[in-house]
Amino acid sequence: MNNSAVARRRFPLSIVVLLAAVVILAILPFYIRGYWIRVLTTLFMSAVLAEALNLVVGYAGYAAFGNGVFFGLGAYTTAVLMTRFGWSFFPAMIASCFLAATVAFLLGWPVLRLRGHYFAIATIGINMAVMEIVTYVGITGGGKGISLPLFPGDIVKQGLFFYYGMFILLIISVAITYWIANSRLGYGLRAIKTEPEAAEVMGVNTTLYKVLAWSISAAITGIAGSLNAYWLTFLEPLFVFDIMISVEAFVMVLLGGPATIFGPVIGAFFLKLLSELIWSQFTLIHMGVLGLIIVVITLFLPSGIMGLWRQMTLRWNKANTARTSPGSQ
């Protein structure tokens, strides 16, 4: 790369911090109790969902308000394959990933032609429609839910399996985002976000790029759903197809900073830890507080934590940049 992006200049420091974070999180399970292992597993999952949504919302600029549909699809594919067809977990997980990606790929061609509100509403419609169908169809256990086979092994092993499973998935999704951000796909998506016509006449196959981004996002979300299903061992349509899954991910992306590599992860950690530490006891007002946080973020931190950081560095750089160039009078 042409050392162009501002963020990459602080490479050495950020890589040290990153490696330290990875090492700490990797050895942490040996020092903490089951409760915190569960909390962190949930946290990783939220970060994965946010990171996956970021590809569509942050980079391509499409408000996929119903991206949770792939979470539900992944969960139910795994559940049905394991329960009804006796598959073991990993093949079922891979099938879930493929199914989610395929659905996004097929729906993407017509649906991603819609812009703005229309796309947002269409994804909500798809989410609800799939939920209703899953509730109706017999093989999924319908509205009563479906139970998965239990994880073989004791509760400690089980906790570690899902902790590391989600952790690895998070690392993979961050790596994918990093790769995309520095590839033609990433640049194409960022161009599509602000000027789709200009992107198209500059040689970007905009439709293909959008569909690819959505499919990758769906694949990651599908795996998260699959792992979560095996972890919970019981699924209900209303739970895994809840619009709140997407909305929370949305808030994490916005809080952290859309179209940044680590923003969504930071947003997820921030929001989830806050929720765990401060108001997890007050379940009655959980939703209301989340609503309040959303309103406060949009009013006071519209470009997110990373955006704030970026603005500050830009202002810093600006002071050191020459001002002479064509047309300035």
């Binding site: 808030v251 009655l284 939703m287 949009t298």
Partner: peptide, 27 residues
């Protein structure tokens, strides 16, 4: 105040308001 941040922010902020109001009624 949110108008200038575009439609994604408006979508999210109105959803937040919805959660807030709904929760207030629940309480």
């Amino acid at each position: 105040r949110v108008l200038r941040y575009g439609f994604v922010m408006l979508l999210v902020v109105t959803y937040g308001l919805n959660l807030l109001l709904q929760n207030a009624m629940l309480v």
